[in-house]
Design a protein around this nucleic acid. Structure first.
Lengths: 239, 239
DNA sequence: CAGTGGTCTAGACCACAGT
DNA sequence: CTGTGGTCTAGACCACTGG
């Protein structure tokens, strides 16, 4: 469990075996056989329970699959909820060039709504960052985000990053979980101006509460041009 | 692993221990201590590795949490992607009464698009089921669904169920995974008539591909009144 | 038949918590 | 200090698979 905390010199045997098998299996096709447990026992000179501990971890991880009487095999990749993507990554994945234009970036005191959403106290410092997002040069979305300043001290002074999620990542605060609410609406005058659409055109509104571990790092409201953006979500339990 | 396949008489020790601990812990508050491993060794007269196998399963399940040097404790419930809900359940959860009015229900041959989405062959039999959904008596959504007829023989003849997902559930085909695409739009004339809104009013369009295990059981397009419906989604990896 | 994973034993030493 | 979980050993028998 705590291999990252182990000092340099130590190397737990089950970890050695696990990583050996992982490296063997890394680029193998699904269905390829992994070494048998008894083969690993001989190769590493360890007890079978130790080998099983190593293999168990890889099975739980979804990398291997045991078939009684036959052997252990590379599992077909399980369906999984994708990594949580920021706007720039999302656009890159769609083959578009994502750009941002900052409309507002300043330190504020949290109002009651933002404070509740960020799980902080009203009046605490927050970063308010509003951006116009483009894709291949054409307006795509307006994002209005609030960040918990306590978690990212000096954020405004350090120069605004291109990708918020990358910036959070570098602080060990990449969101891995988000709660979104999504609704359809029509664009207001102001939104229409920024997005270069007609007032009354359809837009998709997304409110996000993004967490890194237990910490709420970002709450935001985004409004997307409906004619340019479709949201994809996977729901339920992989498997 | 295969406790369900085990004959009546057999009872694997690690399963006995696991279920004993599970029952102890079922209604316990997070943070409550579970029996220590050595205590279970004495209680069941088994080896410690056997107890660990039992506890490991509960830890992987997220029910228990080990703290080295302290003991094993009931874990706080992990964040999890919710069970995939059908319309009726979704409305119930929101405190609304969900009702359906069938607009169309018949057997058809799959066209190319539906066939691809259902992972079947063009011309295969499908159930085409179009419904107007109400919440507390007011139109909420129009759902146009296609079901793989091979998976649910006699579906049309058996009387249309109130809840599609419950009906699938009873056949062991409750969807546990869905891929949705969501976009905003304005209502067409026909949609506006059904939904009792003005043409041009904002609507949320949701295309769903729902799977039970590996089988695609349902593909559907729904159009929701934006003034009455907000979609909630959780993204990322629980934990 | 030989080989596989699944289960199980009866010990052992370690690092770490709390008293 | 005692008690905890974490690691590890060197065997064993079982049910199952495939040739």
């Amino acid at each position: 469990m705590n291999e990252l905390l182990v000092g340099e010199g130590r190397a737990l045997k089950h970890v050695q075996v696990r990583e050996y098998v992982r490296s063997l299996v890394k680029d193998a096709a699904p269905g390829s056989p992994a070494p048998s447990e008894r083969e690993l026992v001989h190769r590493f000179g360890v007890a079978r329970m130790t080998v099983r501990q190593a293999m168990d971890a890889l099975v739980v991880e979804g990398l291997l699959e045991r078939i009684p009487g036959r052997g252990t095999f590379v599992a077909r990749p399980r369906r999984e909820v994708g990594r949580l993507l920021g706007y720039t990554e999302e656009m890159t994945r769609r083959g578009l060039l994502g750009e941002s234009q900052t409309l507002l970036a300043r330190r504020e005191q949290a109002g009651p709504g933002v404070a509740r959403a960020l799980s902080i106290t009203e009046g605490d410092a927050v970063i308010h960052w509003k951006r116009l997002r483009r894709a291949d040069g054409v307006p795509m979305c307006i994002e209005d985000a609030y960040l918990n300043e306590i978690l990212i001290p000096g954020f405004l002074q350090s120069g605004m990053p291109t990708s918020l999620y990358d910036a959070l990542d570098s602080r060990g605060l990449r969101p891995t979980w988000a709660e979104d609410s999504i609704t359809a609406d029509v664009a207001s005058e102001e939104e229409a101006g920024h997005l270069e659409i007609d007032p009354g055109a359809a837009v998709l509104r997304q409110s996000r509460r993004a967490l890194a571990g237990e910490k709420v790092v970002e709450v935001s409201r985004s409004v997307y041009r409906a004619d340019r953006f479709t949201l994809w979500v996977q729901l339920g339990s992989p498997g």
